[in-house]
Each structure stands twice: as C-alpha cells, then as structure tokens.
Design a protein around this nucleic acid. Structure first.
Lengths: 208, 208
DNA sequence: CTCCTTACTTACTAGTTAGTAAGTTCGTCG
DNA sequence: CGACGAACTTACTAACTAGTAAGTAAGGAG
C-alpha cells in the first residue's frame, strides 16, 4: 500500500485562480469594476492577460465569480459557532469589525458600494448575483436586529428589515466617506450608529 | 442710436458648453466617471469628440467643472428665500426631495456616491473639488440639524456634525440601493430616516 | 474688405481594452 | 514511451480611449 506519495502539494492546487480572484477583488474594492483591466491583474501576478482569460473567459465571468465567492464567505461566516454563540449586540459588533477591517485594507469599499455605481453597465449575470448577495446580507442583519430587539440589547424604531437596509447603506457610505476624507468621518458615522442602536454600548470582544 | 440690433440671440450663448455639462452629468450619475467617454457625450450631442476637448481639454477639467457647477447650485439653493423661510424640519424635507428627484431621473446617483468609488483613480484637482463640495453640503445639513434640535422639530442622539455625515451617506447609499433593487428599498430607508428624525413627521409641502 | 476670434471638424497618434487562436510546457495516466 | 489534458504564453484583432494638430466656416470689429 503506497503511503500517498507525499501529500505536500495536493494535486488540487488552483492557486492562480485564487490569486486572480484576490487581486481582482483588491482592484474592485479600491478602483471599481470599470477602472481595472485584465492587464492590471496580469501585471500584479506576473502572468500574461490571456492566463486570466483562461480561468475567466470574460470580465463578466470574473465579476460573477467574485460576488459568488463573497456570498459563500458570508454563508460560511454566519454559521460559525464563534459568531452564532454571541449575543445579538456582539454579532452586530462583529459586522462592524468586518467593515472596519475593509477600511484598514487601504481604504477598500464593500462589494455593494463598489458595484452599485457602475451597475447600469454590468451584465445581467453580475446584476443578479449582486442582488442575491445583498439580499442574503440584509436578511442576516434583519435577523440580528429582530433578535436584539427581543433581548433589549438593540433599540431602533420601525421595521427590522427597513432598519437593516438603512444600516447597510450607511456602512457602505461610511467607507466611501473614509476615502474621500479620512478615517475620522468613518469613525463619526460608526460612533453614531453605536450610540443609536446599542443603549449599553458595544460589548467587549475577546482578544484576537 | 442703434436700438440694439435684435436681442433675439444674445452674443453670450455658450450653449454647447452647458449641453456638454448636462450630458456628462447624466452619464456620470448613471454610469460613473470611469465608464463614460468623450465619444458618448459627442454622440449624444451630435458633435465630434474634439469639440468636447475644445471646451474641456482633459477629462479631469470636465470633472472639475461638473463638481464646481454642482457646488454653485448648492450655494445658490441654500440661500433661496423659498428655502431659508422654512422651518428646519421643512428644510430637511426639501433635502429629501432633491434626492427623490435624483432617483426619479432614471435612477441617478448623487455626485458623492458616484465619484467616491473611483476616487483613487481621479486626478488631484477633482479630489479636492469633491472634498470641498461635500464639506459644504455636510455643513449645511449640520446647520439644519442644529436649528431643528433647538426648535424640537428634529430629534437625534450625538453631535449634529456626526449625524449630518451619517444622514448624507445614508442618502447616497439609498440611491445605490434603489438601482440595485427597486425604488421600494429606497422608500424603506427614507421612511426610516423620517421616523427617526422627525417626531411630528414631515411637514406638508406647498403644491409645486 | 480684411483680420481676428470663436467654435468647431477632420485627421491623426499612441496607448489600452476585452477577447481569440494557435502554439508550448509539463505532469500524469495507461 | 506516448497520448492527453491542464495551465499557461505568444501573437494577434478590432474597437475604443484620451488627447493633439491643423484646417475651416462664420460673425464681428476696425
């Protein structure tokens, strides 16, 4: 019985594909979908543009893959025990952390904020994927708000779904403010959100 | 004495320049700055691209002119007696009207929302102009909030400047939501804003 | 009538864009 | 060894990009 001839480099190593997505994501979130090209990605990865076309024949394919990957991340993240075991207020805090980490990555925007501007010039597949993604995200926030209102940790007026939509657009906009001004504008807006939503403030996070 | 040889067409008729700005604005707010070209404008106006370059040598010049015009509009608008005579709550309502009218113009975004995504790839003159414009807009909203809190018409937690920043990003984001989904998402967010800010609801507007 | 300015058009450049087609290299399987 | 497929590269196209330079039509001023 062969002891599996070195598991060092498993045959499944679609590394380039992942690196393309990583680089494309960085470009998307800093410059917008219309303002980066296959050449930008190729140069950064030290490959030829045609290599990108091999993995993603059209730019629309690439865009769809990007949104789908982000959707998969969300689906996984929201079921993580580390997250589901938290109180609603702490879960909301984790959401804020995600946006703060976006900001720290050289002022990156979120997917929604980045893609909504050129939405009119996107192909239909990308539009649908973006709608699905934001629906999932809004759905999760709505759940958190509903649960938080029940425990009294989160306070707000109106319907949870409406508040969720408002919060997410505020967060998307806050990232845009951060890049036009500096991070202080962002902090103001986040602080405002916390003041309004969490009467007891943000629960402490376990040290990373 | 010559009776002014027909005032029919006054010599000052920079009509093309204005039409270029109008068309460029429409393209900017529906597609984003990176996703339209001089050719798009030229085709729409039935002139050659070089005619646009005559009025605005570089695309950056055009962008700066667009933001400056919008800034001038704001400066004029905020001093209009029709507006200054209103109560703070009604002034806030007028602001909402502006965004609602943007939405009705084929789902146009606002200047800030449109330009912040590609901010990284804009030239420095455009960046500065955009910063100035948003500072002026935020300043005005801060004034309205401060005055409204004093009269009790507007209610909110925290600093007026922080709340102003939050409101404007929410409005920018709301227009983005409207185009990714439909206008219902927009209405939800606007409704949420009114519920939270105006305990007496929106004052009635004089019939247009 | 001539000159000059304004507002263009025609004709062009150099660079970039997404996308394609035809190889090439390399590891694996039979 | 030889075929094969995966992951590329090289070489290309057609369209579009911002921007420029030179020419032109028209109107007013002297």
């Amino acid at each position: 019985m062969k002891p599996s001839p070195l598991p060092s480099v498993p045959p499944a190593l679609p590394d380039t594909r992942r690196r393309i997505l990583d680089e494309a994501e960085a470009l998307l979130l800093t410059r917008g979908f219309q303002a980066f090209s296959y050449q930008h990605i190729a140069k950064a990865l030290n490959v030829k543009p045609a290599a990108i076309h091999y993995h993603f024949p059209t730019k629309d394919d690439l865009g769809v893959a990007l949104i789908q990957r982000q959707g998969a991340r969300l689906a996984k993240w929201r079921t993580l025990p580390r997250l589901t075991e938290l109180t609603p207020a702490a879960q909301f805090g984790e959401l804020l952390e995600v946006y703060i980490s976006h900001l720290r990555r050289e002022g990156q925007l979120c997917y929604f904020g980045s893609l909504s501007v050129g939405f009119e010039v996107l192909g239909e597949p990308m539009r649908q994927e973006l709608r699905r993604f934001t629906a999932a995200l809004t759905g999760w926030v709505t759940e958190v708000l509903t649960a938080g209102r029940a425990t009294g940790e989160i306070r707000f007026l109106g319907e949870p779904a409406a508040k969720a939509a408002q919060i997410l657009t505020t967060l998307a906009g806050a990232l845009q403010v951060a890049r036009v001004y500096d991070a202080r504008g962002f902090d103001l807006i986040i602080g405002q959100l916390i003041v309004e939503l969490l009467p007891n403030g943000l629960p402490p996070r376990p040290a990373a």
